[in-house]
Amino acid sequence: MALRVQARCVRRRLAETLPDAAERAASHVGALSSGKIVAVYCAMGSELDPEPLARALIDQGRVLCLPVVLARDAPMIFRRWSPGDPMEVDVAGCPAPLPLAERVAPDLVITPLLAFDAEGGRLGQGGGYYDRTFAACAEATRIGLAYSGQLLAGLPVEPHDARLHGILTENGLHRCIWH
């Protein structure tokens, strides 16, 4: 719990001091070689905003989707989404595409985080939504979107925690080696 509080403080500070970080991260979109269907997210609080990355992915001809929480203890589903589509609030209180939007299976998932380590460890908000979802769609490539300053040495990782394949920051894509 203390680690999450500390990580939130660090992320808020980074959001204030690096206002162009999201645009800089999006400039590295070419490093994301895989993924015809890409899951992004709606930024909450000081999360690095994926909107510039979403625009860059659309320019590459990729299909976007957003996660949707239907039940608190279940994996998320993904619904096709484009900027400007109507949204509603899901069970977790996050903006999500309407039920009439097509359900899709992403092959690349861009995920928010509080902190990460060089081995692909990810500290999330603590709800377990992404870990449950990653277990259910293990074939998808998992990329964190973060400020480079969110890097910590050796995050505590539980057996159910799914490691990330890489982290996209304002400085580029950092591939994680954890095999």
Rank of each mutant, 00 (worst) to 15 (best):
I110P: 05
E139R: 10
A31D: 05
P83K: 12
C65L: 01
E51F: 13
L48C: 08
R13D: 07
L100Y: 07
G128K: 04
R163T: 05
G84Q: 12
P159Q: 10
C9K: 13
C9M: 09
S46V: 01
P106C: 11
G121D: 12
R8S: 08
Y41E: 14
A71V: 01
L164I: 15
E88G: 14
P86R: 05
G144R: 06
G172E: 01
I77K: 02
V38S: 14
H174R: 14
T17P: 00
I177H: 15
P106E: 09
Y147W: 02
A115M: 01
V104W: 01
T141H: 03
W81A: 03
L64W: 06
E158F: 01
E88F: 06
L168A: 03
W81L: 00
P99Q: 05
T111Q: 00
A118V: 05
G45H: 07
T141Y: 02
P52C: 12
A31P: 00
E51N: 12
R80E: 09
Q60F: 06
L152E: 07
I177Q: 15
R163A: 09
L3I: 00
L168H: 06
A105F: 10
V40N: 09
Q125F: 13
V63P: 02
I37A: 14
A135W: 09
P156H: 00
D85S: 10
A21S: 09
D107M: 04
G61K: 04
A74C: 11
M76T: 02
A54L: 09
A43V: 08
A136D: 15
L164M: 15
G144Q: 04
T111P: 00
A140Y: 07
R11A: 08
L14Y: 06
L57W: 11
A105K: 12
A105E: 15
L57P: 03
A101L: 05
R8L: 10
V109L: 14
W81Y: 13
L114W: 05
A146M: 01
G93H: 08
V29A: 14
V5D: 12
P86I: 10
R11W: 11
L113G: 10
Q6I: 10
P99C: 02
A136Y: 06
C137D: 11
R132V: 04
R11K: 10
E16M: 04
Q150D: 03
L14F: 04
R24Y: 14
L32G: 07
Y129N: 13
V69W: 03
V68W: 07
L145I: 07
D49H: 07
I110L: 15
E170I: 06
G120Y: 13
R122W: 13
L164Q: 12
I58H: 00
V29M: 11
R11E: 03
R142L: 13
V10R: 14
G30T: 03
M44R: 15
L168K: 04
R79Q: 01
L152F: 06
A43I: 07
A101M: 08
A140C: 10
D49R: 06
P156K: 03
R24A: 15
R175F: 07
G30Q: 08
F134Q: 06
L114P: 00
E88W: 12
A74D: 04
Y41V: 10
G30V: 04
P86W: 03
L113E: 00
Y147A: 01
G35R: 13
A140D: 08
A43W: 05
